[in-house]
Computed example of a mutant assay.
Amino acid sequence: MTTAIAKFAHLQIPLEDVVKATNNFADDNIIGRGGLGHVYKGQLQRSGEMIKISALRLDRKHGGGVVEFWTEVSMLSDLKHPNIVSIVGFCDEQHEKIIVTTYEAKNGSLKEHLSNPNLTWTQRLKICVGVARALSYLHYDEGRGYGVIHLNINSSTILLDENWEPKLSGFKVSIKQSLNRMDRVILSEPIGTIGYVDPEIEKSKGVTYKSDIYGFGVVLFEILCGRRAYIRNDANRLLAPLVMRHYENETLHDIVHPDLRNQISRGALRRYSKTAYSCLKEDTMQRPNMVTVIDELEKALEKALKFELRLEYFVRPSLLFFFFFMSITSHHFNLFI
């Protein structure tokens, strides 16, 4: 790992600085618990400026995680996009391995808000578009000279900032691939989170960038239905086969989040669900690329914004008339008394 440390030397942060930033890894500062360890929030002095940070501290008790640690450091050191978390640095000393990023999750992860009645359809679509743009950047950006297959797209790795802008995280199992070989199968065991793993990996014994498309398709349906991709003790524990069945039977409206039904026009629902469904196609060749997905989602967002304006145009005058009527009625009633 000496070579790796030398390559990323400019990102090294002394352990004492991270300890101070997180108040000695205080329990009150824990904002996440994952398979590799806890995530802490804190404030770190960097280049004369105090910044808010998240610090993933690898759990030393269980060992392992070293490959994932360096994969994440390597990936984030190259990636610069408004919808991807930004690395601040890392710590690798005294048997501690810590990845420090800017604190992006002021509104937590998308997973925490799937059933949130206050998260509107328009806001949800904006989140979808942001994540799609991040994935397009990973898959196609020519500035790096290589593409990235994320391999763990899910509603937990999508963080939401104070403006509900999405920030993609979780690059611990990501793979670099030549841009001209992104559609080639890379031999791999099934990687990812239950409910999001591309079932085609078992058959092809490997992954392609279309594995990310599948995971994103599941997220799109999570956002529409307001439920998680995997619910352990539920009869329909896996969301993907459930939504595919409803889509094919033209009964998808039955499982749309109740608070969203009156916010979605038929046209927007049709365009959105067709796009999400195409991402889950069994044949990876039939799944769209992210350029196509972005185009469809942006059109769905455009429809949603117009529908929202129409609702305001018709509903607001009605409410004003109602309150005016009530005030007049109340006035006459008071005079009568």
Rank of each mutant, 00 (worst) to 15 (best):
G48W: 14
G192Q: 08
V18I: 15
L280C: 03
E93R: 15
T208Y: 04
S47W: 06
A304Q: 11
R124E: 07
R287S: 01
L309I: 12
K281T: 01
T208E: 09
Y277G: 00
N23L: 06
L44C: 06
K303W: 14
I328R: 08
I53N: 02
S155E: 05
T193C: 03
S136L: 05
S188G: 01
S178T: 11
D27Q: 14
E296H: 12
D92P: 03
D259R: 03
K111I: 00
G147I: 11
V18S: 00
D295N: 12
L224M: 10
V73C: 07
F8I: 02
K176I: 02
M290H: 05
Y247M: 05
W164N: 04
I98V: 15
L114Y: 07
I194G: 00
F325I: 08
R46K: 14
R237T: 02
P317I: 09
S86M: 09
V197R: 12
V88F: 13
I127P: 07
K306S: 14
K97E: 13
A6E: 05
T3C: 00
I13W: 06
G64R: 13
K111V: 01
E165N: 13
S54Q: 09
L187T: 14
Q12D: 05
D28T: 07
R261D: 02
H257Q: 09
T122E: 00
L305M: 14
I149L: 12
K106F: 04
D141I: 01
S188H: 03
L44Y: 15
K176G: 01
G195A: 06
L11S: 01
N83M: 06
R310I: 12
Y313Q: 14
L220R: 15
V207G: 01
H150S: 09
N180M: 02
K167R: 15
D141Q: 01
P199R: 11
S77F: 08
R57G: 01
G63W: 02
P288W: 07
S330M: 10
F324C: 10
T329P: 00
K80D: 10
A268C: 10
G145T: 07
T122Y: 00
L220G: 09
H139N: 08
D92A: 12
V39W: 15
E282I: 11
R124S: 09
I99P: 03
L309A: 13
E302T: 12
V88G: 08
L179Q: 05
G35Q: 11
E165T: 13
H150R: 08
L76Q: 05
G215W: 10
S155C: 10
